[in-house]
Each structure stands twice: as structure tokens, then as C-alpha cells.
């Protein structure tokens, strides 16, 4: 089975600064494959191994995708190859734009059986690219998938809803959005890192996105509540006494 794992790179949240005027400072933030897309790669690798197939990574984005470190990192986590669509005009797309470019990029990859996307991208967390992509491709589409088992020419998946778990047979091709609990991504070892250097990356150019779905009028850091920032340390009995006093003083204790 040929499995495509869709990956989004985003700036690392911990390293994003906020300025006094509530604008964001992204200068120090390294771009990384989203945490939940590591689950996507892992799921693609496992399915490819179970079916004697291949796992292909696919990412759409701006110039940040040119980073060889980022590419190697993605490849070292279990991809056989990586398809990168990187263009200044493709940075910061909304979900429908992204889905359109992914559809066009997928048209250039032969014999795709299954497209996997993550629980949500690490910056916008819209949880929509997979759903919209599935609709554009006109194939079987599910979100919230927590387990995927190959069964001959189809898959059996588990999809937890709020009050029940659905077990669903899915014919191929399909687009599945996964949960972040579906697996534990492997930590690449020295061998994986070395092997990653030899695996192919394919650049795709000439793709374009439709107009955005919204006009953005502002982007501002969330306003922070002032905090007292008192810290107590030391002997347990002592800190607990201070903690109880504090809880009493703020009316937090019963």
C-alpha cells in the first residue's frame, strides 16, 4: 500500500515572543514538523510495513520547508521519501487553500492508496485540512481515527465519538485524519538519521492556491492576566503551611 503522510511545519510555540504592543516575534522560533504529524508519519510507516508498501511524506509551505535539517528530521522518522511543495506564495495558507494544493500535489504522485493527516496542525489546529481534502478528492473521508487495521483491499478503522466508538470498513483510496493518541512516534536513532540522508526528497513547483477564505484584519497575542509570581521552596511541612495560608487568603480553601 502506498501511504502518503501529510505534514505541516510551523514555528515552535515556546520560542515565539510577544512584544508589548501584542505583536508576535517569530524571529527566534525554529520551524518544526508539527507534534501530531509525528503520529502521522508513524502511522504511515507502520501501515506501509504491514502491507509491504511505502510511506511518502508530503508538505506544503513557504521557504521554511527549504531547511535540510527539517527535511532530514521528517525522513529520519520513518518516511521512504518526501515530497515538498515550497513557495513564498504558499506560506500561511488557510485550510481550503492547503487542501487544494495538496490535491494538486497528490495528482503528481503515482498510485496513492491512502492519505493520512494529523490530529491538527501545531499552529492553527483547525482539524480541517483532511476533511476538506477528502471532499476535493471525492474519496472516503473520516476524522478522529484512533486505529487503522489493513484488511485485504480495505481498512478497518476505529473512530471514537463523544459517546461511542464506531468501527468502520473503509474502501480505498481514502483520507483519514488521525487522533494524537493513535500511536507513539518512534524516536529516530543514529541509523535512521544516517539513512535519512540517502532517502529522496522531491521538489514540486508551479502549484498555486485559490484566494483565501477570509481577510485577516488583526493578529495579536492573547492578553495576559497579571500574576503574583511568588515561589516557595524547601521543607514539605513548611511549604504546605504556606500553601494553606495562601489558599485561605484567596478564599480558595473550603
Amino acid at each position: 500500500m502506498k501511504v502518503v503522510a501529510c505534514l505541516k511545519a510551523a514555528p515552535e510555540a515556546e520560542d515565539i515572543g510577544t512584544r508589548p504592543d501584542r505583536t508576535l516575534d517569530l524571529d527566534k522560533a525554529a520551524w518544526k514538523i508539527g507534534t501530531y504529524d509525528l503520529n502521522t508519519i508513524e502511522a504511515a510507516r507502520v501501515l506501509a510495513d504491514e502491507t509491504g508498501g511505502v510511506a511518502v511524506g508530503l508538505s506544503v509551505g513557504g521557504p521554511a520547508l527549504a531547511s535540510s535539517k527539517l527535511r532530514k528530521d521528517a525522513l529520519s522518522r520513518g518516511l521512504d521519501e518526501f515530497v515538498v511543495v515550497s513557495d513564498e506564495a504558499l506560506a500561511d495558507l488557510d485550510t481550503f487553500q492547503t487542501a487544494c494544493v495538496l490535491r494538486d500535489a497528490l495528482a503528481g504522485i503515482d498510485g496513492v492508496d491512502l492519505v493520512l493527516v494529523g490530529a491538527g496542525s501545531s499552529d492553527v489546529y483547525a482539524q480541517q485540512v483532511g476533511n476538506e481534502l477528502g471532499a476535493l478528492l471525492g474519496v472516503a473521508t473520516l476524522n478522529g481515527v484512533n486505529k487503522v487495521t489493513p484488511a485485504g483491499d480495505h481498512l478497518v478503522v476505529e473512530r471514537p465519538l463523544e459517546d461511542a466508538v464506531q468501527v468502520i470498513e473503509v474502501g480505498l483510496p481514502a483520507v483519514l485524519s488521525l487522533t494524537s493518541g493513535i500511536n507513539t512516534p518512534r524516536i529516530p536513532g543514529m541509523r535512521d538519521v544516517l539513512a535519512a540522508g540517502k532517502r529522496p526528497t522531491t521538489e514540486v513547483s508551479g502549484l498555486s492556491a485559490p484566494a483565501p477564505s477570509t481577510d485577516r484584519t488583526s493578529l495579536l497575542a492573547v492578553e495576559q492576566v497579571e500574576r503574583a509570581h511568588r515561589v516557595v521552596d524547601g521543607d514539605t511541612a513548611d511549604v504546605v503551611a504556606q500553601l494553606v495560608d495562601y489558599l485561605n487568603s484567596v478564599g480558595g480553601a473550603r
Binding site: N131, G134, A135, E162, T214
Partner: peptide
Amino acid sequence: ADVSSRLLAGLVAARLGTSALT
């Protein structure tokens, strides 16, 4: 924002040529 509604939102939005906005 439940799982089924979110999927339906994306499927409908894409057919209408737009993003589903959370």
C-alpha cells in the same frame, strides 16, 4: 464542534469552495 459535525463542516465547506472556520 463534535467529531461528526467537524467532519461534516469540512466536507460541506470544501464543496462550497471555502474553509470551515473554527
